[in-house]
């Protein structure tokens, strides 16, 4: 029996090592590459760890953002930091608004008895079945005509409509786990419905709200199609758009491209690891980042 369990552990750790390499290996290689000299990247065999550790490509991004054309760095490097800020502004607004608007919509779905409840819930969820590509065509057409193209606020609204169905679904199932008695007690004390939501439900639902906000942020951060189609000037590019400009340009040095990729995933990866419990519980209650 003892021999058996030792063998079992050996097999498990062998598989776990493969899994570990497969999970973080490709990304770590990207990070390692970003700290090397361009000529070292071209070494055969490859140099696994940067020696020396070079920060040039990171400095390029900052110099480019501050000095503009004078810095002499590639165009994409100059606009990258601005696009990073845009992504933060968009994803942050989406997360905040989605949680506020989503909680309001989720409360009646979890607690109130009204005709059309299931129709509302189904309708909200079914809206996600329509492929984004078919919506993109009229949205781009109309946005250009009414002067809403090339604006961050448009992307905030579009991302909101993608994340709201998930956020509402997640929050309404979370609200249902809060004991009804607490709410009744508040009602007896003379709270209005809105006060009940703000003073009783929301504080108790903080873990659910956190999951919803993080997931909304991550979806908005990674959105590409609409960001690509609705931006006309560098001032409104998001980081995903600039990354795609880097990746499809053959004239830019590999280190610059790789560094942009690494920097643009720092926020999502840091968030994912800090809030992993909230994310996993949020994902398992039916919310998906597609």
């Amino acid at each position: 029996m003892h021999q058996h369990s030792r063998l079992r552990l050996a097999i498990i750790y062998f598989c776990a090592t493969l899994l570990l390499i497969g999970t973080v290996g490709p990304f770590l290689w990207l990070v390692s590459s970003s700290f090397q000299y361009e000529r070292q990247l071209l070494n055969r065999p490859p140099q696994w760890l940067p020696n020396p550790v070079v920060f040039d490509s990171y400095r390029e991004i900052f110099e480019g953002a501050v000095l503009g054309e004078e810095s002499g760095v590639p165009y994409q490097s100059r606009i990258f930091l601005g696009s990073f800020g845009n992504s933060f502004a968009i994803a942050g607004s989406v997360a905040l608004i989605a949680v506020v608007v989503g909680s309001l919509a989720a409360y009646p779905l979890a607690r109130l008895n009204f005709r059309g409840r299931s129709v509302l819930l189904f309708g909200i969820l079914a809206s996600r079945l329509i492929p984004a590509l078919s919506l993109a065509i009229p949205i781009v057409l109309v946005a250009k005509q009414i002067g809403m193209s090339d604006r961050l606020i448009t992307l905030v609204f579009i991302n909101l409509s993608f994340v709201l169905p998930y956020v509402i679904w997640l929050l309404q199932s979370y609200f249902k786990t809060i004991p009804m008695e607490l709410e009744d007690a508040g009602r007896i004390d003379g709270c209005s419905r809105l006060q009940v939501v703000i003073k009783i439900i929301l504080p108790l639902a903080r873990p659910g709200l956190t999951s919803a906000a993080i997931l909304a942020f991550l979806v908005a951060w990674g959105e590409f199609l609409f960001a690509l189609l609705l931006s006309e000037t560098p001032a409104s590019y998001t980081s995903t758009v600039v990354v795609s400009l880097f990746a499809t340009d053959v004239d830019v040095s590999f280190v610059s491209i790789i560094t942009a990729g690494v920097v643009s995933v720092i926020p999502p990866i840091v968030f994912a690891l800090i809030f992993q419990r909230y994310i996993i519980s949020g994902l398992l209650s039916g919310s998906l980042k597609g």
Binding site: L20, F27, L42, P46, L218, V243, S244, A260, G261
Partner: peptide
């Protein structure tokens, strides 16, 4: 720890993932 690290690839936006694989599969380097 392994379960938490699964979130690393999950959190990477699809465009950055494409860039990553373009680099991993580069025909020269």
């Amino acid at each position: 720890v392994l379960r938490a690290l699964l979130l690393v690839p999950w959190a990477i936006p699809s465009v950055v993932n494409a860039l990553l694989w373009k680099w991993l599969l580069n025909p020269q380097y």
